[in-house]
């Protein structure tokens, strides 16, 4: 079952690489024009295209890229000649660090809030937590970030931008990336919290919960011991989706906090038509998405024995 999923995942990466290649081919303008920008003349364009090998037909270029990628060689960035593995290496680390940091804040918060909201459903607390979370997600990310900077950085509590280098200690990193992580926390919490609440409440009308209630168990115990384990599958799925978002979708937060992550790299590469970089980052993103979904499915199956014996 897992082997099949893995095979499907690899097939999916292949489709993604085709889609991305096709889309970048359709983009108006090419790498040579982007590099030369306002300085492009027909003569320099031709010389640069020749240098970069842009004159080959599209299928040839795709094949060149694919055969390299299959042997683990993603090539060099076309626009500045640096090896892609080097370009991506540090940024991938940064992206994963920020995603995990935000998840470490957001997952416990949303689980606790969601459980409490389900426990005290329709109370003032429930409504207030719900309205608060909805308000937080209805502001654009950059706006949330600006407000946090206004409150927490201009007062001197936290730095307004992230300046990390290889010598930064772990503690400093935690401190410096707090604002971006908090921004992302505010962005993803509502979704997970609402799902937790809904999944638990969905079960509250089940006969076995009724039974537990009649036995006189405390509401907290009913929610934690009886409802939650059965509600885990949808919750895990939504956590996986949000983790995937934290890895792939945070370009705006990266820009605001000057955080060198993969999102900014991808946007830069798209606007420069640097297709080798675009492909590599897209594959990392797609890979993260596939892996997280796979893990979520496995975990849901483990937490729910009935799913394990379904077939």
């Amino acid at each position: 079952m897992i082997a099949l999923r893995l095979a499907l995942g690899i097939g999916l990466l292949f489709i993604v690489s085709l889609i991305i290649f096709g889309a970048t081919e359709l983009l108006p303008g090419d790498l040579a024009q982007q590099i030369l920008g306002q300085g492009a003349t027909p003569e320099t364009l031709a010389a640069l295209r020749e240098q970069l090998g842009l004159n080959d037909p599209a299928p040839v270029r795709y094949w060149n890229w694919l055969s390299g990628a299959l042997t683990g060689d993603f090539g060099v960035s076309l626009s500045n000649g640096r090896p892609i593995s080097e370009l991506i290496g540090a940024r991938l680390g940064n992206t994963v660090f920020l995603a995990l940091y935000a998840a470490a804040l957001a997952v416990p918060i949303s689980l606790i809030l969601g459980i409490l909201a389900a426990l005290w459903r329709n109370s003032i607390f429930d409504r207030a937590a719900n309205a608060g979370a909805l308000t937080a997600i209805s502001f654009p990310e950059f706006f949330v970030a600006y407000i946090l900077v206004l409150w927490l950085a201009q007062t001197g509590l936290f730095p307004s931008m992230v300046r990390i280098n290889p010598t930064t200690t772990f503690g400093d990193r935690i401190y410096m990336t707090f604002l971006p992580a908090l921004t992302l926390t505010l962005v993803v919490t509502a979704h997970m919290m609402r799902m937790t609440r809904a999944a638990i409440i969905n079960l509250m009308a089940s006969p076995y919960i009724e039974m537990a209630r009649l036995k006189g168990l405390s509401p907290l115990r009913i929610v934690l011991r009886h409802a939650l384990p059965n509600a885990l599958a949808p919750i895990i799925n939504v956590i996986a989706l949000n983790l995937a978002y934290l890895i792939t979708g945070v370009v705006v937060v990266e820009v605001v906090f000057v955080y060198p992550g993969l999102g900014q790299l991808m946007v830069d590469a798209v606007s420069n038509r640097d297709i080798a970089v675009v492909q590599a980052v897209a594959l990392i993103f797609a890979g993260a998405y596939v892996a997280l979904n796979l893990i979520a499915d496995v975990l849901s199956t483990i937490t729910n024995p009935r799913l394990m014996h379904r077939r």
């Binding site: 889609i19 370009v251 998405y289």
Partner: peptide, 18 residues
């Protein structure tokens, strides 16, 4: 699945540019 594994914002950016 393939479309969803491409970040939405970046995918929209690509499509709108095209």
């Amino acid at each position: 699945d393939a479309l969803m594994s491409i970040p939405a914002l970046i995918f929209s950016l690509l499509l709108l540019t095209i």
